[in-house]
């Protein structure tokens, strides 16, 4: 579904991504693991067109998307959930969802606010509350719901568990498993191995802008030396 090869990006003269390669298959949940500054968020942003890639190929559903505008990429069916959440703080929950609304591809069951409130019940109870007056966990749910309103085929989730209380992280994992059950493909970036393990099929490890390891979650859990070297858990 998503095929990234040789992806590079620069900030000024500094190489921040250097030949990143990864793939996500239909219905699959892949986690991009790495420490802060390893290049996870930049990879996500480069796929979305928010950081201009300086080299490499990004193929989504068979089309080349490198160099396209973020809005075009979003319209092809990529949904992006940023690390900083970035809910529209002065818009209500319903208005936030409205901004994300896009028509569903033919044959797919479109997301509606009602379906999303079933997935995230706490949002349903505060439909008219401005985004700025919600807790961090609620904002994280809203930002995912907002992206789902665009009926994406593939969801890019940048560090969804960051800064959340352990109980909220557990609820987040439940929601991601529910989305996977719906058939959605997900590329997740994480530092939290516990959380990644609970939801992902495959893992790709990134360090200093390069891919260092790639394999199934089970293989990663078996490879203690890999976790030791790159994740040190």
């Amino acid at each position: 579904m998503l095929e990234v090869t040789g992806l590079s990006a620069h900030y000024g003269r500094a190489h921040i991504l250097d030949g990143v390669a990864l793939s996500v298959g239909a219905g699959e949940v892949v986690v991009l693991l790495g420490r802060n500054g390893a290049g996870k968020s930049t990879t996500m942003k480069a796929i979305m067109g928010l950081v201009p890639p300086s080299g490499g190929s990004l193929r989504f559903l068979g089309q080349e998307i490198a160099g396209r505008e973020p809005f075009e990429i979003a319209r092809l069916g990529l949904g992006y959930v940023p690390e900083e959440r970035r809910v529209f703080s002065e818009l209500t929950v319903l208005e936030n969802l409205e901004v994300g609304r896009k028509p569903a591809p033919a044959g797919a069951r479109p997301w509606t606010p009602e379906r999303l409130f079933a997935l995230f019940p706490s949002l349903g109870a505060m439909q008219d509350r401005p985004g700025g007056r919600m807790s961090g966990g609620e904002q994280q749910m809203l930002t995912i719901a907002r992206t789902l309103m665009g009926n994406p085929r593939l969801l890019l989730l940048d560090e969804p568990s960051e800064g959340l209380a352990p109980v909220v992280v557990e609820r987040m994992a439940d929601a991601i498993r529910a989305l996977k059950a719906e058939g959605l493909s997900i590329l997740l970036s994480e530092q939290n191995l516990h959380f990644a393990r609970a939801v992902s099929d495959r893992a790709t490890i990134i360090e200093k802008g390069r891919i260092r390891w790639d394999g199934t979650m089970a293989a990663l859990m078996a490879a203690a030396e890999v976790r030791e070297q790159y994740l040190s858990v």
């Binding site: 790495g34 420490r35 802060n36 390893a38 960051e162 800064g163 530092q191 994740l231 040190s232 858990v233």
Partner: peptide, 11 residues
């Protein structure tokens, strides 16, 4: 205030 937020476990 959250001295290690956004750091890798080893760091």
């Amino acid at each position: 205030d959250e001295p290690t937020a956004g750091m890798a476990p080893q760091e």
